[in-house]
């Protein structure tokens, strides 16, 4: 379950996790805190590990050695490429939306 701060949210859990790990390896709680700070979205533990497990299965993130209860994760090269591609799409969308807004409501 993702608790949203507003209705026009743009994030989905896998993307938010990849975005959080772009800043460096983090364990589960650090990801939850980072996503809450950066996106205003509170991810539940089941949602986080459901998404994290699928990302790990697809090879987009990997677990690092560490405490079994607070294992850190990092982006793989494939994960970084997938995130970069998605962020570029989002960036284009944002630029277009902002340009249209400023043209219609100068």
């Amino acid at each position: 379950m993702v608790r949203r701060a507003d209705q026009l949210t743009w994030g989905n859990p896998p993307l938010l996790i990849l975005g959080s790990l772009a800043g460096g390896p983090k364990h589960g709680y650090a990801i939850v805190q980072d996503v809450a700070e950066q996106a205003g979205i509170t991810m539940g533990p089941g949602t986080l590990y459901g998404a994290l497990s699928r990302l790990e299965e697809r090879g987009l993130v990997e677990a690092l050695p560490g405490d079994e209860r607070r294992r850190p994760y990092r982006l793989t090269a494939e994960g970084a490429a997938a995130l970069s591609e998605r962020l570029a799409d989002m960036s284009r969308f944002a630029r277009t939306g902002l340009a249209r807004l400023s043209a219609a409501h100068p």
Partner: peptide
């Protein structure tokens, strides 16, 4: 183990129960 540790860190409640279910 990680999931249990995260629940300890974030705290439990009806929302977390639903999320885990």
């Amino acid at each position: 183990a990680e999931l249990a540790a995260l629940v300890e860190d974030t705290g439990a409640g009806p929302r977390v129960w639903w999320d885990l279910a």
